[in-house]
């Protein structure tokens, strides 16, 4: 009887092992471990540190809400959000708009068999491949206000001089333009790929029905591209919210704090002021904004699909 129980027990164990190895779990666990170690744990740590007064240079720290309170009550908080909102919204809108226009032009060129469309595609993509710091330096040379600045040298020929980086309002516009230049390539590539997937028969049907170019774009192409546009919107928004390297090289956040976006503020708080607690609190704020925007976008798409 006892031997029978023992066999039964062993059989059950072997069954469980077989079920375990037969399931996807052994394959998913390593991935889960890597994701946990490289994504979940750092996010947890950032969230934990945001409730402390920790310093980057170590030492003891205590748990407190002071990081959030001093962030929200700081004299530059509202300005930082305003600067970030302007930077992100204009960057996203124009990156997607220019990306779409270039993608349509390149697609049209490719359909017409123009060899230059490959050159155009490569040239636009090169902007995306350049590191942000280098882009910041390139644009600072273009924007320089002295006679050495390329844009002001050209404008000087018609008697103009623009304070691209020294006037607070103009500086924000200048930084945004540089970021639009940088990010347009990504939108172009994504949307160009999307255009290749459009069903040719639907396009042909629209042509046969007498739709002109504008009608084909707005009533056929854009609705079909909607999922790609949404992915583009999410990725570009998050990427722009997280941009700091180009701004750091171009203006460092100045003049004053006129170009200090949230991501750059995090860098400054942690690596310039060693304030890990408040830097982490600002990072949590940025994460929250990114998550909220993603949920809103996805919710919007799902609702649209249901209506459709």
């Amino acid at each position: 009887m006892r031997r029978h129980d023992c066999y039964e027990e062993r059989g059950r164990k072997e069954g469980l092992v077989r079920v375990f190895f037969g399931s996807p779990l052994p394959w998913l666990l390593p991935l889960a471990a890597i994701l946990g170690a490289t994504f979940i744990y750092p996010i947890f740590e950032i969230a934990r540190l945001s409730f402390t007064d920790a310093s980057l240079v170590g030492g003891e720290y205590s748990y407190t809400l002071e990081s959030y309170l001093s962030l929200f009550w700081s004299p530059y908080f509202a300005n930082m959000l305003k600067v970030t909102a302007v930077f992100v919204s204009f960057s996203v809108v124009f990156q997607m708009l220019f990306g779409l226009l270039i993608a349509l032009a390149v697609d049209r060129g490719a359909r017409m068999g123009l060899k230059t469309s490959i050159v155009t595609r490569t040239a636009v993509l090169s902007a995306w491949a350049i590191p942000g710091v280098i882009i910041g330096i390139i644009w600072s040379i273009l924007y320089e206000q002295s006679a050495a600045g390329i844009l002001n040298y050209v404008l000087g020929s018609i008697g103009l001089s623009v304070p691209f980086l020294s006037d607070p309002q103009v500086a924000l516009a200048s930084v945004t333009v540089a970021n639009i230049w940088r990010g347009t390539a990504f939108s172009m590539i994504l949307l160009y790929a999307g255009l290749q997937t459009l069903p040719e028969d639907v396009m042909e049907a629209a042509r046969v029905d007498g739709a002109n170019a504008w009608q084909r774009l707005t009533r056929v192409v854009l609705p079909l591209l909607a999922p790609i546009l949404l992915i583009n919107l999410i990725v570009v928004s998050i990427e722009t919210f997280n941009t700091f390297d180009m701004v750091l090289a171009l203006t460092g956040g100045g003049p004053g704090r006129s170009t200090e976006v949230v991501a750059l503020s995090i860098y400054n708080q942690i690596f310039q002021q060693f304030d890990l607690g408040q830097g982490a609190a600002t990072a949590v704020l940025l994460l929250t904004i990114n998550l909220l925007m993603t949920f809103v976008y996805v919710g919007f798409l799902e609702r649209k699909e249901e209506v459709g």
Binding site: Y76, S166, D167, P168, G254, P255, G256, R257, S258, N268, Q272, Q273, F274, D275
Partner: peptide
Amino acid sequence: YQNISTALQVAVGQVVSGDT
């Protein structure tokens, strides 16, 4: 000091740009 330095860098920038 690091906080003071950052705050005063901002102050000089704001004064020079005519922001405040």
